[in-house]
Design a protein around this nucleic acid. Structure first.
Lengths: 244, 244
DNA sequence: TCAAAGCAAGTGTGATCACAAATCAAAATC
DNA sequence: GATTTTGATTTGTGATCACACTTGCTTTGA
């Protein structure tokens, strides 16, 4: 058999086959916990145990403990002096801190993205916007999970275009940290008959389409701020009621 | 025995004793690797093995693998598809990316710190400056390790005053990522008979003392940029020579 | 009746082992 | 002599176990 022929055959096969990848159990656990955190499936202050999660995810403790360790270093979870780990609780200071950091970094990312996005990328985020409208039109009952997912897709599709391998992981870390808080806000939004989020997103798309970095940054800041200020007022009200 | 008397005795003991703490092996390994990384003890592109590090640190593989996992999530190390881990290599793009992120985030931190720092904090960083001068005056041969340490103390003493529990870990992550690069630059600086770093630091202190956030931010940007642009030129020159 | 001591279940940490994949070098093949 | 194959060694991953610490409850003692 000639080696050239074999080589050619291999290439032909390679073109057909998708790389199967070799995701470890640990990676799956990590992704799953991230998803749960960003989606707000865990409540702030909730304590997580290694064996409990291992049972829930049907694996041994090994991958879970490593995944928890990773989440702790990116401040998505918090290690108590007892050595137990919990979802960080919400405080007013932390809320302000997170918001400021998100506006700073995601603002920079979108400003960079404004210069890098082509018609191709704009079309992609417009698709997400259309999906959102569709969802809102069809079903009267709120699908918070889907809202969270679409919102995430919208934002990260933009951030991916910023071309910075350093900023994106930081933004992911910030979402991980604000996830548990935001979920509370989104629920409250839905109940309060929220102003349409799509409106804010449309302003962002318009700015990006015209490569107007400054306007995009401002529109994004407004979009991000909404749930935070909402939650902030709610907490402040609750605190005031406690005092009385 | 009256419980009041016992209580009082306990308090007396507590006042004398320092809390012993309960640092895990994993934490020590993690800190040690961080120190090595920020200090630039590992070279870019260097591959690290779990068993190798475990032997060097005289522990089992368990704490090392968890520490490595944590460092990978904060992008201080890189997981290859082979499942081996290495120190991320230097590229021009990555250098620019890191510099931009550092100016953005550390700039914000120092601007916040400018408003928060009292005479107490100013005095602390002036002490560090004095130590620097002393070191430069006394010894002619360069002590790069000490330079790195003092530089780190100076910057983080400032950042600690910014009052943001969100920004500081991000800055630490950025230092972790740029550590292996910077070391190379500092060495080169020392050989090239560098312009005195203390000069840049003094400008920062002056701005902070007068609570001039804008000037502090600019002075910091200049300080941070130096090693990066230096390294950038060096790399570009090397790349040009490769082509020829 | 109440607080302190004691006990038992649960939890995180580290060590060790088994296994699969990768790597490198020597040997076999053309 | 160059390339492929084979085999031994190394490496990361996951499971399991032993141990120490915490926690919550029961029991004991005043």
């Amino acid at each position: 058999m000639q080696k050239a022929a074999i080589e050619k055959n291999n290439e032909a096969i390679a073109a057909q086959l998708a790389p199967v990848g070799r995701e470890t159990v640990q990676d799956r656990v990590y992704s799953e916990l991230r998803r749960a955190l960003i989606g707000g499936l865990f409540e702030p202050s909730q304590v997580l145990t290694i064996r409990g999660l291992a049972d829930a995810l049907v694996t041994s403790t090994m991958p879970v403990r490593e995944a928890l360790g990773r989440l702790i270093t990116e401040k998505a979870l918090e290690a108590l002096p007892n050595r137990s780990v919990r979802v960080p609780p919400i405080t007013l200071d932390r809320l302000d801190d997170l918001l400021r950091a998100r506006i700073l970094i995601e603002g920079e990312a979108i400003a960079l993205a404004a210069a890098h996005m082509g018609p191709r990328q704009i079309a992609t985020i417009e698709t997400i916007l259309a999906e959102w409208d569709e969802m809102r039109a069809l079903k009267h009952k709120k699908d918070v999970d889907r809202e969270v997912t679409l919102n995430q897709s919208f934002h990260f599709e933009i951030y991916r275009s910023c071309g910075s391998a350093v900023l994106i992981p930081m933004i992911e870390s910030l979402w991980l940290q604000s996830g548990p808080c935001i979920r509370v806000a989104i629920y409250a939004f839905s109940e309060a008959g929220e102003v349409d989020t799509a409106q804010y997103h449309r302003r962002i798309v318009e700015a990006l389409a015209t490569q107007d970095a400054r306007t995009a940054r401002e529109a994004l800041a407004a979009d991000i701020s909404r749930p935070f200020t909402f939650l902030r007022d709610k907490l402040q009200f609750a605190a005031g009621k406690d005092q009385a």
